[in-house]
Write a protein that binds this DNA or RNA. Structure first.
Lengths: 338, 338
DNA sequence: CTGAAAGCGCTTACAG
DNA sequence: CTGAAAGCGCTTACAG
């Protein structure tokens, strides 16, 4: 299967009766090779199941054809927030799109307070660029990367004043779609159980929520609006508080599917039926959304597409230097919970 | 920060007034260097934030210091089974342990029916070895890897007749602990809602269940035993069937946390209280286990330890050729659901 | 303990 | 279109 006699392009060159240079060109699809010669070289390579040596190629070309997905090390202890489930679902899409572009995906677990990590991966020639998630998008990380001219792409809205690649969900639209759906189904007291107040994405979703209500002639009740983490417990706690304070509400608009699931659990424990008494809407549409009981009505972020764009646009940037900032549309998926 | 003037060991050699050979030895901690010389070289390297070129190192040493975590590509379309959530939680632990050993983790998404993938990673010198999960542990993959003498380690019981590294959970003990706990809390009609019948791990858990019941003087009711997938829907379907057929049962022993969560949902929808009417036990102790409502009583697999062993033992095998097969103890975590 | 030199397996100007 | 040669940045016998 793997042929011990054919390990390098020199072996192929010998068999094909040409020089190493020619074999190298043939295998890399250079136009500087006679078609017939190219075919002969490729045939021999295929026949012997030849695989080009990656280190030699990287050393010579000064690029590794590897990208790092940056995850924060503290996520790997005990606590997995929504971002991590999100990360997993995204990882596959990224990895798939990357291999289509002949790139590999390295998993980089970095200390969130360390600023040296980019050097460890970039200066070693270990990777050609980074993919950052919203959770890793601390300002100082971005700034470090920009300063060292590291190629990278970010999932989330780009920081104003900096130029770099990004893929963002349409959070304003997401907030609008969810709110419109609730209004349409007769809900009037909609609690906004948000993620961190300082996250731009969260602010946009709130903006969508607020604008739809305002346009429909309703006022926002500040009692119904809260911010916290994207996690289930954070959501559960706030829904419980609403119940305890006897605030009336007939819908909960959360900022992640995990938050929605936890909200539903708390409501049910307190004798509220979902969606009969209270509608609950999630965000992301992770696979758990359809497996929950009741299944989640949620705003889909289209992770397969997001992953593909993250991979493709970073590779393009590395190869061409063109900065892209794209926004992926939000889509409402209606199931049982609202 | 990263110093444009000091990019290679040649630069350091110049500054230190020694040869490249000496710098190389100093940086790699070779004993063949005078202590004082070593310190001088390292100081210069640190001062200029020098990072050794990875490709050159790999090419010269003929090893990449990278391991591949093998995941199946079809997991990345739509469907994420328990194995994948499991995978994510494990990934962090593996990645952390690997960086402690100065290894990197590459994510390999492979077509489950392809047998050529090991070549693509190994013959290219891309990685030094593979970590396979239970789900990727198809017999023919193992055989291919053994035949090509590829270094690898497997999460799960090793195939008889083959010699390779593995880390396994103590599934017999896991099955026993869960069953004993249910018996102790007065349960007598315990449904075993299992994973795939042909998985060795599942068989062992059943064996634990069966032996505890037998030793306590109870008979197994075949109506209470079923096999399927590790997924939530598979579990839900079977619990629903029990309810429909009016089989009496006061406990459900599942083979994954997702299965337990789905089982609980179905039971609650049908008016059964958990754990008052029916106790439900999960397996794995993923982070969702504690966030579910009610929180899951489950058999912990200790993923941080498993990840560490997977990483460490494969690295050791690569460096020493010593085959290790270790079993990680199972531990019962008692929460609300049983 | 140290250095000069060869070698790892590619790619790519350069010359033809 | 093709080949000889230099070079990518390390490591490691080998000789001292």
């Amino acid at each position: 299967m793997n042929d011990k006699s054919v390990q390098t392009i020199a072996d192929i060159a010998r068999l094909a009766g040409v020089s190493k240079s020619t074999v190298s060109r043939a295998l890399s699809g250079s136009p500087l090779v006679n078609e017939e010669t190219r075919e002969r070289c490729c045939a021999i390579a295929a026949e012997h199941n030849f695989q080009i040596n990656n280190a030699a190629r990287s050393l010579s070309m000064k690029q590794s054809h590897t990208l790092a997905l940056v995850a924060h090390a503290y996520h790997h202890k005990e606590c997995y927030s929504v971002t991590d489930l999100f990360l997993l679902e995204l990882m596959g899409a990224i990895s798939g799109a990357l291999s289509a572009n002949r790139y590999d995906l390295l998993l980089a677990s970095v200390d969130p307070y360390d600023t040296q990590w980019p050097h460890q991966y970039l200066d070693t020639g270990r990777v050609d660029g980074f993919i950052l998630m919203t959770s890793t998008r601390k300002q100082f990380h971005i700034k470090t990367l920009v300063e060292m001219k590291a190629p990278f792409i970010v999932w989330g809205t780009p920081l104003p004043g900096f130029s770099y690649c990004s893929v963002t969900g349409d959070n304003l639209m997401g907030g609008r779609l969810a709110t419109e759906h609730l209004l349409r189904s007769g809900r009037r007291r909609i609690a906004f159980v948000g993620g961190p107040a300082n996250e731009f994405e969260v602010q946009k979703r709130y903006e969508g929520y607020e604008s739809v209500l305002r346009e429909a002639g309703y006022k926002i009740d500040p009692e119904l609006v809260s911010y916290g983490e994207f996690s289930g417990p954070s959501s559960a706690e706030r829904v419980a508080k609403l119940l305890k304070k006897s605030v009336t509400f007939d819908a909960v608009l959360t900022n992640s599917d995990l938050m929605a699931i936890s909200a539903i659990n708390v409501l049910q424990e307190n004798g509220r039926r979902v969606p009969e008494d209270v509608s609950v809407i999630g965000y992301d549409d992770l696979s758990i959304a359809q497996h929950n009981s009741p299944s989640l009505t949620t705003v889909r972020q289209n992770l397969p597409l997001v992953g593909k764009l993250l991979a493709k646009n970073l590779v393009d940037y590395i190869q061409t230097g063109i900065v892209t900032n794209v926004t992926v549309p939000a889509e409402l998926v209606i199931r049982k919970s609202a």
